[in-house]
Design a protein around this nucleic acid. Sequence first.
DNA 1: TATTGTTATACTCTATAACTATA
DNA 2: TATAGTTATAGAGTATAACAATA
Lengths: 156, 156
Amino acid sequence: MRGVGAASCPDEPSGALARQIVDAVDQLVALWFTAVDEVSPRVPPRGIRALQAVRRRPALNVTALAEQLDVGLPTASRLCDRLEAAGLLERCARPGDRREVHLVMTDRGRRFLADLGERLSARLGGVLDGLPPERRLLLEEMLRSFQEPPDTRRAP
Amino acid sequence: MRGVGAASCPDEPSGALARQIVDAVDQLVALWFTAVDEVSPRVPPRGIRALQAVRRRPALNVTALAEQLDVGLPTASRLCDRLEAAGLLERCARPGDRREVHLVMTDRGRRFLADLGERLSARLGGVLDGLPPERRLLLEEMLRSFQEPPDTRRAP
DNA sequence: TATTGTTATACTCTATAACTATA
DNA sequence: TATAGTTATAGAGTATAACAATA
């Protein structure tokens, strides 16, 4: 568990690339928070992540959502209250086992996330427009490696 | 304000790359939150961003910090209370104008952020280890474009 | 008087525990 | 009894407004 690029350049201080990557991620995170602050209606970061989790895995239940967000079950339930009140999410009793609740996004929720994505994209564009086109194509290849991340949620 | 890659590939659906980039950023943000949840002592995301802001611009005052975080002045002050109580930050009256307060990181604060960076790096490494070395070097070049971002704080 | 920052109060969000409903 | 989720209460965090201190 040595981190980014630990074994790639033995002659060079291996921390250089790692630091660069971490700094870049911090910039991206800052950009993300900025976009989240802009979007309407105001949904706190945790709410955004909840919506994204539901988009990624439709018909998620509340327990799974709580695990995804690393919060308690009541917190996730309350969060769903607010997202549902805002019209971004809906709770549907699961046929077959009526204890479970399926979370599904509303059209408004989809538009909301799309809007957020566009704002983020615009801000990223401001940074990436400086890149020559072939660099951008390489970036595209690069980003594919993030599409299937090693499951972030492996509990010990 | 068309966003990422809007004009690069006229034949291709231009939203594809944009969507891919935004998804990747979402993954990175999720990774960031996971690392933030792990680190000790527990500091909420806003506290992390505050510490990073102070690291980036040492001797920041409280007003500037509030602007960086896009929160009110009292909120920033309270946040400093907690970070100071945790021993991660210190307030120093500025010589010359004793109204202002300079925020400086403690050694503990520096170690804290370093620890966070290592955890993030380790998690990123898990994703990036799959990349061949030359791809990683290209990534390094790419990330340089994020080092000097167009000022995120331009209010309309 | 203008600027920098802190305190006062109410409100929102989160966490732990107790409770309801279904299986 | 075990599981999925909700409500109860208390505590942490945030925002708006009033305040204190320095220039």
